[in-house]
Design a protein around this nucleic acid. Structure first.
Ligand SMILES: [Zn+2]
Ligand SMILES: [Zn+2]
Ligand SMILES: [Zn+2]
Ligand SMILES: [Zn+2]
Lengths: 126, 126
DNA sequence: TATATTAATGCAACTAAGTTGCAAATATAC
DNA sequence: GTATATTTGCAACTTAGTTGCATTAATATA
């Protein structure tokens, strides 16, 4: 499963993530490639890249889907969390390299967590 | 702002939350009141109840909107977090009464966070 | 209690994100 | 170079949520 062939669409999408070191929303990708890649294809390429462990996805505010490159972040222990930070000013999202430990919950079995921290990013703090 | 009048729709919605002590998705509410309240009205009633501090909203998996009653949980400090737990088996979401402290992020200004923990709920753990 | 005022509702039409089926195009294997 | 299987584009669809506007219902006032 995942990416089997190195097609033009795959290259274009990967180039986008290599160029800027941050998360990119699907909406943004669909828009910026609108004259090169069909909307459906963008969704499918991202899907395959995620299956392949090249990208990971998560939801930003308003439930919009974002993708970011994986840097071995897919092999965390299940109670550790890879949080994301979304700037309320510029909208940018970064992967955070800190671990947030979820406390043990009595009578529950924790399998994972999604943490979205909101605030002002470095650039917007001045 | 918020709820000004105690209408039939407001009573029906509040009754639903009083009857079961858990979060309810908007989709569920729209569906279960489909013969009594118009879809648009459901959305607007929930909006007003949230403005009024009666309910709070958050996103479950797939970015679907959920609401739950507020129990003074709207007056937390901004670095403390009121997390939610969604069961991967039955889909139920509960508000968690634990505080997850977000670490200080250098050069960033944290304003809040959304934490969705996933796993098996008490009922589904057996 | 009747009337005026304003908020709330229903409806239909719309938007936006994401999905599906299928035929045509393209990458890889042989 | 040809065969095979994957990928793509397109159009049509689905689903969650929103908007404008005319009608209805709740509250205030007399
Ligand atoms: Zn910023
Ligand atoms: Zn990330
Ligand atoms: Zn459960
Ligand atoms: Zn809650």
């Amino acid at each position: 499963m995942g990416v089997v062939r190195k097609t033009q669409s795959v290259s274009l999408v990967l180039d986008a993530f290599n160029a800027e070191n941050k998360a990119i929303s699907v909406i943004d990708l669909v828009e910026r490639f609108s004259d090169k890649i069909n909307k459906t294809t963008v969704y499918r390429v991202l899907d395959r890249l995620e299956d392949d462990g090249v990208l990971h996805s998560f939801l930003g505010v308003n439930g919009i889907k974002w993708y970011a490159p994986c840097k071995g972040c897919s092999e965390h222990k299940h109670t550790d969390v890879h949080p994301h930070f979304q700037c309320t000013d510029c909208g940018k999202i970064d992967c955070l390299n800190v671990d947030i430990t979820i406390p043990n919950l009595p009578n529950r079995e924790v399998a994972g967590a999604q943490v979205l921290i909101q605030g002002k990013c470095e650039a917007c703090c001045n």
